[in-house]
Write a protein that binds this DNA or RNA. Structure first.
Length: 440
DNA sequence: TCTGGGGTCCTAGGACCC
DNA sequence: TCTGGGGTCCTAGGACCC
C-alpha cells in the first residue's frame, strides 16, 4: 500500500531545485538532461483501432464504439461485410460513445457523448458494440511489449501507461550531437515494439515528469512522439487551455475562467494568493505548480485496489415500488457479481455501500462498515439491503450500484459474524420507504 | 430523445478518544 | 459555568479520470 496522493499538499512544498519563475531565456549551451525521464504512452483511439484490426474494410470511415444494453437493432446477418454493421441512426437506448475513430471525430462526435445525440450529428457512422475481452487482450500485448524495452511501468487503465525511462540504458546518450537523441531513440523503440506486438499505433510524450508527459503525448496525436523539456514550457505549454492539465475538469475550468484565466500561461502568471483564495490551499498550490510544469509524483508500479464495485443503468427508469419485481433480482445479481469479483481478485472488504441515481440524475450513496471483512454474496446482499432502507425511495431510479471498500487481501474464510445481524440503521426521515430487496 | 461503468482522491462534519 | 485541541474513524457528497 504505497499510493501517493496525486497532488502535493502545501506541506510538501514545491519540488526542489527549480528556478522560481517564467524567466528562462535562450541560452547558448544546451540544458543538462533532467534527473528523471518519464514517458506517457497513450494508445490512439484504442477500442476503435482494435475493431479496425478486425474489420479492415472500415478503415477511414466514421466508426464509433459504444453501446447500450440493447441489441444492435439493425445488425443484419453477420456476413462480415460493411453493410452488416449497424448505423448510428438505428440506435435506440442510453449508451454513450466509448471511442470514436478520427474520421468520426471530424463529424463532431466524441467519447462520452450520448449515442442518441451522436446519431443526430453523424447518422451514417458505423456503430460497433464493445468487446472488452479483445481490448484487454491487446492491452496486455502492448504493455508486455513496452516492458521488454523499459520495465518500470505504471498502469493507468486499459490504454495508457507511464514509463520511467530514467535508468534505461542509452536514455542519456548524446546522438549526433543531440543530447536528447538517446531518449528519442528509446521513444521510437517503444512505439515500434507496440506496433510489432499489436499492429496499433500509440502516441508518446517524454518529459521530466508525469504531468508534462501526459500533456505531451497529446500534442501530436495520432502516432506521435513528443519530447518536452523545462526550457520548452513557456512556448509549448503556456499557450494551451488550462483544461488540458490532467486534473482540471469542467468545474475547476469554469472557476478559473471566472478569474479571467483561460490558458496555462495565465494560470502560471496568476498570484498564488488568488488561487489559494479561490480553490483552497491544497488545490491552489497544486494549480500553481502544475502551470509551471512541476510535478514530482513517482511512477508507481503497483497499488492495492481501494474499492471494487458493480453498477447498472436500467433500460428505462424503474420505480422502487411499482417495479419492485424487476429491481430485486437486478440488485441481487449485482451483489453476486461483486462477490465473484472479490473472490476472483482475492479480496475481502469491510465497507459495503450502495449508490442510486434518480431519474433527475441526482446521486445518493449510503455505506456501512462491518466489524469483520467479508466477500460472501449473501452478506453483501443483506448489508447492502440495509443501506437501501435508509435512502428515500420516492422517485424513479435510473441506476443502482453496489460497492465494497476497505479491502484487504483475504480468502473470505475468516468471518461469518455479520451474517444475521439486525442492525443499527434507522430509517431516514419520514419518507415512504420501500424495500425492494426482499423477495415478495 | 441527453448523459456508461469502474475507479481515485478530497472535503467536511460528527463521534470518540486521550 | 462557556471557548480546548489534536488524531482517527466513519459517512456522504463531489470532482475528476479512463
Amino acid at each position: 500500500m504505497s499510493a501517493p496522493a496525486p497532488f502535493h499538499s502545501p506541506a510538501d512544498g514545491p519540488p526542489g531545485g527549480h528556478a522560481s519563475g517564467p524567466d528562462r531565456s535562450v541560452t547558448a549551451a544546451p540544458a543538462p538532461l533532467p534527473d528523471r525521464l518519464i514517458a506517457h504512452l497513450d494508445m490512439d483511439a484504442f477500442y476503435a483501432s482494435v475493431e479496425l484490426l478486425r474489420y479492415p474494410d472500415l478503415q477511414g470511415l466514421p466508426v464509433v464504439i459504444g453501446g447500450g444494453r440493447r441489441p444492435q437493432p439493425s445488425a443484419q446477418a453477420e456476413d462480415g461485410r460493411a453493410h452488416a454493421h449497424a448505423r448510428l441512426r438505428d440506435y435506440a437506448g442510453r449508451g454513450v460513445i466509448t471511442t470514436a475513430t478520427y474520421a468520426a471525430r471530424a463529424l463532431g462526435v466524441h467519447s462520452g457523448m450520448g449515442l442518441m445525440k451522436a446519431a443526430a450529428l453523424a447518422p451514417d457512422a458505423i456503430l460497433l458494440p464493445l468487446d472488452f475481452d479483445a481490448y484487454r487482450r491487446h492491452s496486455r500485448l502492448f504493455k508486455a511489449a513496452v516492458a521488454e524495452v523499459a520495465p518500470v511501468i505504471e498502469d493507468r487503465g486499459i490504454d495508457e501507461i507511464y514509463i520511467d525511462l530514467s535508468d534505461v540504458p542509452g536514455a542519456r546518450d548524446t546522438v549526433g550531437g543531440d543530447p536528447l537523441g538517446g531518449v528519442r531513440a528509446i521513444g521510437q523503440r517503444l512505439k515500434q515494439a507496440v506496433k510489432d506486438a499489436t499492429g496499433l499505433t500509440c502516441s508518446v510524450g517524454i518529459t521530466p515528469n508525469k504531468l508534462l508527459s501526459k500533456l505531451s503525448s497529446d500534442l501530436d496525436k495520432p502516432d506521435g512522439l513528443t519530447l518536452l523539456m523545462p526550457a520548452d514550457i513557456p512556448v509549448r505549454l503556456w499557450p494551451l487551455p488550462a483544461a488540458r492539465i490532467n486534473g482540471i475538469g469542467p468545474k475547476a475550468n469554469e472557476r478559473l475562467a471566472a478569474l479571467g484565466i483561460h490558458t496555462i500561461g495565465e494560470l502560471a502568471a496568476a498570484p498564488l494568493d488568488q488561487l489559494i483564495a479561490e480553490f483552497g490551499s491544497n488545490q491552489g498550490h497544486w494549480l500553481h505548480e502544475a502551470a509551471h510544469g512541476r510535478d514530482d509524483r513517482p511512477v508507481v508500479t503497483w497499488r492495492e485496489p481501494k474499492s471494487i464495485s458493480r453498477e447498472t443503468t436500467f433500460e428505462r427508469d424503474l420505480h422502487p415500488r411499482d417495479d419492485r419485481a424487476s429491481l430485486g433480482p437486478i440488485f441481487t445479481r449485482l451483489c453476486e457479481q461483486l462477490a465473484s469479483d472479490l473472490e476472483r481478485k482475492g479480496y475481502v472488504g469491510r465497507s459495503i455501500g450502495v449508490k442510486l441515481r434518480y431519474d433527475d440524475f441526482r446521486i445518493v450513496t449510503r455505506s456501512i462498515t462491518l466489524p469483520q471483512a467479508t466477500r460472501d454474496a449473501a452478506d453483501i446482499r443483506r448489508w447492502a439491503g440495509r443501506c437501501l432502507k435508509t435512502v428515500p425511495l420516492d422517485r424513479r431510479l435510473r441506476l443502482i450500484g453496489v460497492k465494497m471498500a476497505s479491502l484487504a487481501v483475504g480468502d473470505g474464510h475468516t468471518t461469518d459474524a455479520t451474517s444475521s445481524a439486525e442492525g443499527p440503521l434507522a430509517p431516514h426521515g419520514s419518507l415512504p420507504l420501500f424495500d425492494f430487496t426482499e423477495s415478495a
